[in-house]
Design a protein around this nucleic acid. Sequence first.
DNA 1: CTTTTATGAATGAAGG
DNA 2: CCTTCATTCATAAAAG
Lengths: 215, 215
Amino acid sequence: MIMEWEGEERHQENQTQRDMVNVNVKNGGVMYVKVMTDEQLETLRNQIAVYASICEQLVEMHKNLTAQQDLAGGRLGNLYCDPLMASAGHKITARQRWTPTPVQLQILECIFEQGTGTPSKQKIKEITSELSQHGQISEMNVYNWFQNRRARSKRKQLGSSSNNAESEQETEVESANEKKTTKPENHLSQQNPAPRAEDLCFQNPEMSPELHFLS
Amino acid sequence: MIMEWEGEERHQENQTQRDMVNVNVKNGGVMYVKVMTDEQLETLRNQIAVYASICEQLVEMHKNLTAQQDLAGGRLGNLYCDPLMASAGHKITARQRWTPTPVQLQILECIFEQGTGTPSKQKIKEITSELSQHGQISEMNVYNWFQNRRARSKRKQLGSSSNNAESEQETEVESANEKKTTKPENHLSQQNPAPRAEDLCFQNPEMSPELHFLS
DNA sequence: CTTTTATGAATGAAGG
DNA sequence: CCTTCATTCATAAAAG
């Protein structure tokens, strides 16, 4: 079935408290769900990783099959790399801000998590080199990314004070209180239409039993 | 999206039993799902985004392969958090945003008027403390509010004086034509049938049938 | 219910 | 590193 979770939210509370949550499924059903443990999350993550990996392999297959595909859709990140624009006279200023492609982001995130706190100049170069295979990027971009990532991950826990229940408005009641900074950013805007399996930093590339349904 | 958790699959059955619950779905199936913390969900979402992106590319390629149609078929989905958002409806951990209560807003507006351009960290704390008397709020909310307020008031001035309406207009238009998703279901009725070249950040949430082979 | 607008939040980049 | 700013995304609220 198509993963369809819907219904009342279940913000994170005490572990003891989040036992069961009933959720309304889109078609009217009701299901009881629970909060994931880290291990489970990890498993799921791996599953997804494998899933992604499979997709990539499929992409490769397609690529081979369609050896002649142009795909040269010349999409440069979020840039309007429309040559006509330049000739149009003005507004040559395309969007100048770099936007990491999902793959790049994944790699960066991966490197970031691996603890190596300070990327160092040399490291930056390497990373940039690697990432440039998946889209335009410069060392400065990488540098900034790490800079921001670090700074923001630190400032994430700005507690939300929800003292009195006087909220006259629909302050939507205790939002999940987490200002987690992990970004789901995903402007799919890559120029490379064919990511490779190696591009993803998933730690465990092997097929896990849970994924049999994918085969 | 097409995450299919169904049937016997029991991830880590030995996990503390309480973490998993079986669920009856409307069609009689049983499914094991979990609710995650926001942080975990974010991480997961991020991962899925990558996967989704790849799928998108795959679909795109497939399209190019099977039909040399030009722009005829709309764009493939955006993603920004749609993989999970779309599937999860919008509740489980939907990103909610703070909405200032009238009182809070009034106070903020007042402070803003009083010129002190730079709220400063300490100031933020104070303000937050004060405002929390009138509803849930976090320092980040206050911080953002001032940031946005300043930026927008500034922008407004620039926009009105210089009749250089170009850039502003363009961005607005660009983001105005997309259909924010609800469900990957069939809501084919209102989608703008005319995909536009400017849709660089394609936002069409629905996955085309080409992906069915994945499920 | 659908479309538009207002605005909270995310984030790349620049300054110090 | 930290703070600030500009832009952009997404969503709550308002309009139709």
